[in-house]
């Protein structure tokens, strides 16, 4: 196992409020990691920093075998080197078809010229079919994404993430608003994805995390409070204090 993403000593503050405080974290490839923490622990900011939306005040973020620094890279460049992100709310392009949504996400050249002269290939169609089958939307490809139910949109977004074929998936609360059956399906998809890539799941729901059966990192006040298996961290004194709000 080699480190794919190495976050060390990262801090960021907004108008004096320290959202992330000297945070360090390492993810290997492949690995499935759950990040949990109470509200305001800095989970979303942590994702923002990795994906380039927020620039940290200090610290290092190194990526891949060549240890490329991600700080200062644009969001799109970070996405292109292989970091995919799924937002808390499903953000799919509501006025376009499921197929178009997936096609846009498919790994490929992203420059305006390539996109303008792009022609759909059989290979791409096959990939779209495979992914849509995996997310259970095979029959919905020609539908407008806006018509889908909330859970279907969540899946479509996960499908778009898979279509990007990233080396690291950042998944923010994938199970929110899903039925138990849909949750189980989502767990399967994530675990399957984690066989070949690194997956970080941010989640509130302990049951869902338990089902993921992976290493857990607990964030609190912008720093790592505890790390280990779920059973290990739930026995941790500090974690109990934080969650019980003492």
């Amino acid at each position: 196992m080699t480190a794919l993403l190495e976050v060390s000593g990262v801090s960021v503050s907004f108008d004096g409020f320290r959202a992330i405080n000297n945070l360090s974290l390492t993810i290997a490839e492949p690995e499935l990691r759950a990040v949990i923490g109470p509200n305001g622990a800095g989970k979303t900011t942590f994702m923002d920093i990795i994906t380039g939306k927020t620039r940290p005040d200090s610290g290092r973020i190194l990526w891949g075998e060549k240890s490329v620094s991600l700080i200062g890279m644009s969001e799109s460049a970070i996405a292109r080197i292989g970091i995919g992100r799924k937002f808390q709310r499903p953000t799919v392009f509501q006025t376009q078809t499921v197929r178009d949504n997936l096609a846009m996400a498919l790994k490929g050249r992203r420059g305006p010229r390539e996109v303008l002269f792009h022609r759909a290939t059989a290979d791409e169609a096959a990939r779209i079919n495979a992914i849509s089958a995996e997310i259970g939307l095979a029959d919905s490809l020609p539908r407008i994404a806006g018509e889908l139910s909330h859970g279907q949109k969540q899946w479509l977004e996960i499908g778009m993430l898979l279509a990007q074929d990233p080396r690291l998936l950042l998944v923010d609360e994938p199970a929110a608003g899903m039925t138990p059956a849909e949750r189980a399906h989502t767990t399967d998809i994530l675990r399957r994805a984690a066989r070949t890539r690194a997956v970080i799941v941010v989640e509130h729901d302990m049951d869902f995390v338990r089902r993921l059966d992976c290493r857990v990192t607990v964030l609190h006040e912008g720093a790592v409070l505890a790390e280990g298996s779920l059973d290990h961290v739930t026995r941790n004194r500090d974690v109990i204090d934080v969650y019980l709000g003492r």
Binding site: R85, F93, Q94, H118
Partner: peptide, 23 residues
Amino acid sequence: GRMGSVIRAIRDDEARVRFLGYH
């Protein structure tokens, strides 16, 4: 085609398009 998809996506949610890797 793809270009139209991308520019309409930019119209609707440009931040999301960025995270898909489009500049």
